[in-house]
Design a protein around this nucleic acid. Structure first.
Lengths: 143, 143
DNA sequence: TATTGTTATACTCTATAACTATA
DNA sequence: TATAGTTATAGAGTATAACAATA
C-alpha cells in the first residue's frame, strides 16, 4: 500500500483540483457561448458520437432517465436534436442530433480545444510524458 | 505558437476530461455522504480556510451574490455555518463555520484524499514529475 | 451615491414516484 | 411481468432585477 497522505500527493490533489475547476469553468463558458447549459452541451456532445436511446443517455450521464426527457425537449425545441423511432422496438426513442445540432457540437468541441491553452506551455516531449502519466494514473494501458 | 490541434494534444485533452469527470463524481459522492450538495460542500470548504463576507464567497465561487444567501441559509439551518457581524462595517455579514461545520469540512477533505486512489498507481518519482508538469501547465512557477 | 446583503422571480437540473405503451 | 419513456412533484442552484440598511 503506497502512502497517500504524504504532502506530495496532497500537492498533486490540489493541482488536479485547480485543473478541474478551470476545465469546468471553460466548459460552461464555451457552452454558454452557444446558448447551451452545461448539461445540454454534454448531452449534445454525447449524441454527436452516435444516436442513443433515452435510457442509455441517462446511464452515460449518470442521472435519472426522467431528467433526460426535459433536456432533450429543450434541445429539440431549438432544432438541435430530434427523436427517432427504433424500428426494432417501438418502446425506444433514439435521440439524434440534427444537421444544425451536429454543427453546434463540432463548434463546441473546437472552442474547447482552443480554450485548453495551458497545454501550449509544454514541449512535445513533456506532453508525451504527461500523457503517459495520466494514462498510468487512470489505469489505462496503452497497447 | 505551438500547434494545439495535433493528436497528442487531443489525447491529453481527452485524458484530462476523464480525470475531471472522475474527480467531480467523487466530489459529489463524498459531499452526499455528509448529506451535502456539491455547492454546499464547496462553500463550507471555502469557509474552513477563513470566514468570508457573502460578497467574497460569490466572487470565489464565481456566481451571483444572491445565490449565496440561500446556500448559507441551508448550511446555517443545519448548524454548520453561522453569520457574524463585521465590527468594522455593519453592512457586512461574515459567514463562518461552526465547530461542527469545521469537523464536517475536515471529514470531507479526508474522504476526498482517500478517494484519490489513482495516484497510488504512480511511483514517488513519477508523482514528482506529474506535479512539475501540472505546475508548468497551470503557469505556476515553483519558488 | 455606492456598496452589502436580501428578496422576488423565473428557469434549469435533479431525484422520486406514478403512469402509458410496448415487449 | 418487465422495460422504455413520460409526467408530476418538490428541492436545489442559477441569473436578473429591485429593495433596505449602511457607508
Amino acid at each position: 500500500m503506497t502512502p497517500r497522505a504524504d504532502s506530495l500527493t496532497a500537492e498533486i490533489v490540489d493541482l488536479i483540483g485547480t485543473v478541474v475547476t478551470r476545465y469546468y469553468e471553460e466548459y460552461e463558458h464555451a457552452a454558454a457561448e452557444h446558448s447551451l447549459t452545461g448539461a445540454q452541451a454534454r448531452l449534445l456532445s454525447l449524441l454527436s458520437v452516435e444516436p442513443l436511446p433515452m435510457r442509455k443517455i441517462a446511464e452515460r450521464l449518470k442521472c435519472e432517465p426522467s431528467n433526460i426527457t426535459g433536456i432533450v425537449d429543450r434541445l429539440e425545441s431549438r432544432g438541435l436534436v430530434e427523436r427517432r423511432p427504433d424500428p426494432a422496438d417501438r418502446r425506444i426513442k433514439l435521440a439524434a442530433p440534427t444537421a444544425e445540432g451536429a454543427r453546434t457540437a463540432e463548434a463546441l468541441r473546437m472552442s474547447l480545444h482552443f480554450a485548453r491553452e495551458p497545454l501550449g506551455e509544454l514541449t512535445s516531449a513533456e506532453r508525451t510524458l504527461l500523457k503517459q502519466l495520466l494514462q498510468r494514473m487512470l489505469g489505462i494501458t496503452p497497447e
